[in-house]
Amino acid sequence: MATNWIFQGRCWKFGDNIPTDALTPTAVMFKSPKEMAAFVLETLNPDFPKQVRPGDILVAGRNFGCSSGRALATKALQATGIGAVVAEQFSRTFYRNCLEIGLPLLEATGVHALVNDGDEVRVDIKTATLENLTTGKRLQGAPPSQFLLGMLQAGGLIPLLKSGRFPGSATR
């Protein structure tokens, strides 16, 4: 359950059109998310699964999580301990899959140009802001709706449904 909306860590920068197949290669699809985490994005950056630390921030360009829409890709990414994922734009399926498991993410136009791999960054999901602590530059993203924040805070869709509390709903 997310109670802290602010994440700070090393920036892991990736480009445009990163498919879910790169997050979870076919050969590891039948492993647990924790086992799959050892292979996440290794074909694009072999250091990522070995050196990513809890709280680090993954930054990407446009269409992150495209292609097959593997729901396990988000679980494997979450199992790395990544704090949040920020991209210019997400594949809609990937975006919803992250929200459904409670993995914090943020869309922010201009984020790819704002950071470099290895920069120290801070992201506040609730206020939709990203700050490159290495350069001092800041960026305002698109804030998630109250409902989506509530889903993230609950830890995903299933915990939200079990709680019976639906943010932004007039019925509860």
Rank of each mutant, 00 (worst) to 15 (best):
30 F>L: 14
163 S>D: 04
89 Q>P: 00
93 T>W: 01
114 L>S: 09
125 I>L: 06
165 R>E: 14
108 A>S: 13
10 R>E: 13
119 D>A: 13
107 E>Y: 04
94 F>A: 11
89 Q>R: 14
28 V>G: 00
135 T>L: 06
145 S>R: 04
30 F>M: 13
138 R>M: 08
102 G>M: 08
160 L>S: 05
97 N>E: 00
24 T>V: 15
35 E>P: 05
88 E>W: 03
134 T>V: 09
2 A>E: 09
170 A>T: 12
106 L>W: 07
166 F>Q: 00
77 L>Y: 03
114 L>E: 02
137 K>M: 07
157 L>E: 05
52 V>F: 05
126 K>V: 02
64 F>W: 11
143 P>H: 08
64 F>D: 08
95 Y>P: 03
54 P>V: 11
107 E>L: 01
142 A>N: 13
33 P>L: 10
75 K>P: 00
113 A>N: 14
133 L>N: 01
71 A>G: 15
70 R>I: 11
58 L>Y: 01
156 G>D: 06
154 A>D: 11
17 N>V: 00
41 L>D: 00
132 N>M: 09
117 D>G: 04
89 Q>A: 14
2 A>D: 00
84 A>N: 04
15 G>C: 10
138 R>N: 07
41 L>M: 15
169 S>E: 07
81 G>F: 09
95 Y>W: 15
58 L>N: 01
25 P>R: 10
138 R>V: 05
16 D>M: 05
142 A>Q: 14
119 D>P: 10
1 M>N: 08
165 R>F: 07
49 P>Y: 09
46 P>N: 12
8 Q>F: 02
140 Q>D: 11
66 C>W: 12
30 F>I: 07
82 I>S: 01
140 Q>Y: 04
82 I>H: 02
35 E>I: 04
143 P>V: 09
89 Q>D: 08
153 Q>W: 02
121 V>S: 01
117 D>L: 11
141 G>N: 09
95 Y>T: 05
93 T>Q: 12
94 F>R: 01
107 E>D: 04
134 T>S: 12
49 P>C: 11
15 G>R: 03
16 D>S: 07
159 P>M: 11
17 N>K: 12
168 G>C: 11
101 I>Q: 00
55 G>D: 10
78 Q>F: 12
49 P>R: 05
72 L>Q: 14
23 L>D: 06
21 D>Y: 01
115 V>S: 06
58 L>H: 04
12 W>G: 06
89 Q>G: 07
141 G>Y: 04
107 E>Q: 14
147 F>W: 11
162 K>S: 09
82 I>W: 02
121 V>G: 03
